[in-house]
């Protein structure tokens, strides 16, 4: 990191610190924590979909897996450091296997979507049916539909008595999101990230240039899963219970809506989309006139029809045409990527 990158990193850090400091003045830290966790989840799909061109309909599978792994490991270990690490590694490993199976099989976009969806369903059905006492991992009962309550929540590493909760937990989550964001920025700046963008734009050309497409897509997929797993572990700590609902199709749908609304091909878009829509849902949850699902569905349909680029790129291009010297290519990238599917029909 040098030159303009160091500058961008510093600016990101400064903006993030100000936001993290100001936000609790308006919204309670309890709500903010979940917004940040959802932001991280949205970010994980935004990375693999927006920058890798991998449309995964089952990002919730990795989220749920992270949460379950954390809960099970926390009950068995009685502290939270190793469970956090496992909650990142296990979903990543699972994604490596799944991704290798899909990408080395050269499956198309649609099949990818269907397989990830089906895998999510399998996990959902399986976890839902584990109510019996025979489903035990170590000391933890899987609990079926009721989920797993009462596990050790986050503590200071090495000191299981010192819990991190409330405001402190909010700052931990926010810091983790900033770290993940900076790491992903660095990743996208590296040659790996550049090649991933190349694969998104034109897979055949990149493979003719000698890059191993399948391996690179698999690794990117696993990185996305690792971030989703981290978000899942943080969610488990926030909710203090994990249920099979984490694996549900509705959860997967929401992640995709966040990305579409926020804007694909940008880093902040999915985070803002996730936090914004989650907050909207929170506000809507306080009224009972109109069903929540209906509004989310309507938002998705309207965005696909009228603003398929998403909010952040639209605002950015508006800003550029109003104040900038020349339109930046990022918007075009997003559009080109979304057009890619058109040729297949």
């Amino acid at each position: 990191m040098q030159g303009p990158w160091a500058k961008e990193g510093a600016v990101t850090l400064a903006v993030a610190v100000v936001l993290i400091w100001l936000a609790p003045l308006m919204i309670s830290t309890y709500t903010l924590t979940i917004l940040i966790i959802y932001g991280m989840l949205g970010f994980s799909l935004g990375l693999i979909w927006g920058f890798g061109g991998i449309l995964c309909f089952g990002q919730a599978a990795f989220f749920g897996l992270g949460a379950y792994v954390y809960a099970i490991a926390a009950i068995n270990f009685g502290e939270s450091t190793w469970p956090m690490i496992l909650a990142v590694l296990v979903p990543a490993g699972f994604a490596l296997l799944l991704g290798a199976m899909m990408f080395y099989g050269r499956l198309g976009d649609v099949y990818l979507g269907v397989i990830t969806l089906v895998v999510t369903l399998i996990l959902f059905k399986f976890i839902n049916s584990t109510a019996g006492p025979q489903y035990v991992i170590g000391k933890a009962r899987l609990g079926g539909f009721n989920g797993i309550p009462g596990f050790q929540t986050l503590n200071v590493p090495g000191n299981p008595e010192a819990y991190i909760w409330g405001d402190a937990y909010y700052y931990v989550c926010a810091a983790l999101l900033v770290i993940v964001y900076l790491l992903v920025t660095a990743l996208l700046r590296s040659s790996f990230g550049r090649i991933a963008l190349g694969i998104r734009e034109n897979e055949v050309r990149m493979s003719l240039m000698g890059y191993d497409i399948a391996a690179r897509k698999t690794v990117l997929f696993a990185i996305g899963a690792a971030i989703a797993g981290l978000a899942g572990a943080l969610f488990a700590n926030w909710g203090e219970i994990v249920t099979p609902g984490l694996f549900s199709l509705g959860q997967s749908a929401e992640i995709i809506i966040w990305c579409i609304v926020g804007g694909l091909g940008t880093r902040v878009g999915p985070i803002l989309g996730a936090a914004g829509l989650a907050y909207l849902k929170f506000m809507l949850g306080q009224q009972s006139l109109i069903d929540n699902t209906l509004i989310m569905g309507l938002i998705l349909v309207l965005f696909v029809l009228f603003l398929p680029k998403g909010v952040v790129p639209a605002v950015a291009s508006l800003w550029k045409t109003s104040f900038g010297r020349r339109p930046f290519s990022r918007v075009h990238q997003a559009r080109r990527m979304r057009n890619r599917g058109r040729g297949n029909g």
């Binding site: 979507g113 995709i256 069903d291 929540n292 699902t293 209906l294 569905g297 938002i299 696909v304 058109r342």
Partner: peptide, 24 residues
């Protein structure tokens, strides 16, 4: 028509919308 991924997303939105309507 012809925009595979967009139809997928729009119809998913529709499915949520119908679920919401039926719930209401």
């Amino acid at each position: 028509y012809g925009r595979l991924v967009d139809t997928m997303l729009a119809t998913w939105g529709l499915s949520l919308l119908f679920i919401g309507l039926a719930t209401m």
